[in-house]
């Protein structure tokens, strides 16, 4: 039982990171229709923004986190201008290849500026743990789950209670109509990219202390975020959360109860099964046509 609790908490902590990465991916996808293959590198940049402010510049916690997220916001804006705007008229595939190309550049840029040695990003609740029914739960893992919950609540408020959020949803549904309604579409699109980058930054800052930071960490996270998105439902925010937690749990529980060698087949097998049986995922997608 203690082990089971342990596995559930660890699975939820990993799942929270996948969920945040998946949310960033979904926000961009529903607002702009872009399948962002650089999503994993966004998270990697988030972690290294933390490395730059916390480890290199040695800023105190609140400032370091703030500065890292500010860097990510600027990066999101830069990405909007230099990658999204030039590519937006391209086909799905052109955009996929374009974001892959950018992710190669991002990864190499990180290698050039931070080197190949991994980093250990500190955490404000370093090394403290609580005991729960015999399971030892690191405070950081609990914090990750809590922060994710807060972010999700904040997003819900943003999309349902603010004009910016409602505008973003309008743009996601019909760009032309939104434009005719007098919405500043470009500004809202830019904001989606910034929001996605900031969320990736939060994910990056939280996983740094759990997993160490290295410049090659992005792609595996992106793969899991894709699986999470499909399982939860393409374009759905609740879906991204449920999918992320599901993938995290299936990884840990699958390794424990099925086979540690083949555990990743479980996530991807379930993803393919969902695509075949229920392509709209758990929560479904309202906007796009599907097979």
């Amino acid at each position: 039982m203690a082990d089971f609790v342990q596995l559930i908490i660890n699975g939820l902590a990993i799942g929270s990171v996948y969920a945040l990465a998946a949310i960033g991916f979904v926000i961009v996808y529903s607002a702009t229709g872009v399948v962002n293959f650089a999503a994993g590198q966004f998270v990697m940049f988030g972690t290294f923004a933390g490395v730059a402010t916390l480890v290199n510049a040695q800023l105190p916690w609140p400032f370091a986190y703030g500065a890292a997220l500010l860097i990510m916001a600027l990066f999101g804006a830069l990405f909007f201008v230099s990658v999204y705007l030039p590519l937006r008229r391209g086909s799905i595939v052109t955009i996929i290849i374009g974001t892959v190309a950018v992710s190669i550049t991002m990864q190499n840029a990180a290698l050039l500026s931070f080197g190949s040695w991994p980093f250990r990003l500190p955490s404000p609740v370093e090394d403290s743990a609580v005991s729960l029914g015999g399971a030892i739960i690191s405070l950081h893992a609990l914090a990750v789950v809590a922060v994710t919950a807060v972010m999700v609540a904040g997003l819900w408020l943003l999309f349902n209670r603010t004009s910016v959020g409602v505008g973003m949803r309008a743009v996601a549904q019909d760009v032309q109509a939104a434009r005719l309604m007098g919405l500043k579409v470009n500004r809202l699109l830019a904001f989606s990219w910034i929001l996605a980058a900031v969320l990736a930054g939060v994910a990056g800052l939280m996983l740094g202390p759990m997993w160490f930071a290295d410049v090659n960490m992005g792609d595996p996270i992106a793969l899991k975020a894709f699986a999470a998105t499909i399982i939860g439902g393409f374009g759905s925010l609740p879906g991204a959360i449920v999918g992320g937690l599901f993938v995290g749990l299936s990884e840990v529980l699958g390794a424990s109860y099925v086979s540690s060698a083949y555990k990743d087949l479980i996530s991807f097998g379930i993803m393919i099964a969902f695509l075949l049986v229920r392509p709209q995922g758990v929560f479904g997608e309202k906007i796009q046509d599907r097979g």
């Binding site: 996929i96 499909i230 393409f234 991807f268 993803m271 393919i272 695509l275 599907r290």
Partner: peptide, 27 residues
Amino acid sequence: PLLRLRGHYLALATLGLNVSFYIVTSN
């Protein structure tokens, strides 16, 4: 079964297929 999917659904399904191929061949 797979080709009932379209667009990015098919893209990600085939991506999953490729990842699975890697896991199987390496184990």
